Amino acid sequence: MNEEHNASVVGGKSFTAVAINCASKAGEWIKTKLGNYNQLQSKYSSQDLVTEVDKGSERLIRNLIATHFPHHSFLGEEGVEPGPDASVKALEEARNAEYLWIVDPIDGTTNFVHGFPFFCISIALAHHGEVIVGVVYDPMRNELFVAEKGKGAYVHGRKMGVASEERLRESLVATGLPPDQQAALPLNLRGINQLAPKVRNLRIAGSAALHMAYVAAGRLSGFWEIGLNSWDMAAGSLLIQESGGTVTDMNGEPYSLAVRNVTASNGRIHDELLTALKEAETSAE
């Protein structure tokens, strides 16, 4: 796909081209900092990490977006206080904006800190609460996943499609290990215990946004996780939907920015995946 010519445009400016430019520039800068960060801090828990590179990446993206769209709203992970309550409040305050950029400057910070090459930049744009642009960029593999509402999703310029598996037992499925060890982690572990014997195999690689991009690209058949935030999922949700997949909460309700417990799949295994998670009593609601 020629992203610039297929982009959503307002006032002659392409939303998608700006998102791609931001993700690419942030990704190249992050690569120069791999193994070279100076400050490592814990946020909500000892598993919830942040470095000055996360903050610098978000600042770079915010400034670039403001140059092109100074009146748009911005919701970035590093601008929100730690913890699920603060995340919910920040989204509530921003979600009614006409245009809202939703950014995770490094999704997979723990991987970045350890030099494990599975992390990405996730940038989404919502219009009146509906995601219309989604970009996930993996700087270590130079893979750019791009979606526009109603126009499909692409990687390496090729249109993506979800996996063809019809049954859970044939499927490669991913999940995460939430940093919230009191509530979200135990619930997600129940799901792992329930799903592991029922799928071909499980993967836990440490980046929800990249896992969702892999569902869109047909590399995974499904993904679920408890306790995520809008910046983890917004771009990935559009990638999957535009690739022919399904994204819901764990009750099967359609994805919205407020969803925190997500189930995503190629669509074909979705009901079976939801049923297994329900049997595991993973719902936090």
Rank of each mutant, 00 (worst) to 15 (best):
A205N: 10
L172N: 04
A208N: 14
N193V: 14
P178H: 10
G134L: 11
H211R: 00
F119E: 07
V113E: 10
I204Y: 08
L202Q: 00
M212Y: 13
I106G: 08
V155I: 01
G191P: 03
N96Y: 09
D104A: 13
V136F: 12
R95D: 05
C120E: 08
L172P: 00
E170L: 02
A213L: 11
P197F: 11
A97F: 09
V162D: 00
S207Q: 11
E170M: 07
P105F: 15
A205R: 12
M140C: 15
N188Y: 07
L100N: 10
V199H: 02
I102M: 11
A124L: 12
I102Q: 09
I121S: 13
Y214F: 13
Y214M: 09
M160W: 03
R95L: 05
P197M: 06
A205F: 10
I121N: 14
Y99A: 09
D107V: 06
A126E: 02
V199L: 01
N201D: 10
A209P: 01
N142Q: 15
N111W: 11
M160I: 00
L187C: 04
P139Y: 14
E98P: 02
L210N: 14
A126R: 12
F145V: 04
I102T: 05
G176D: 11
L195I: 00
P186S: 09
A213D: 06
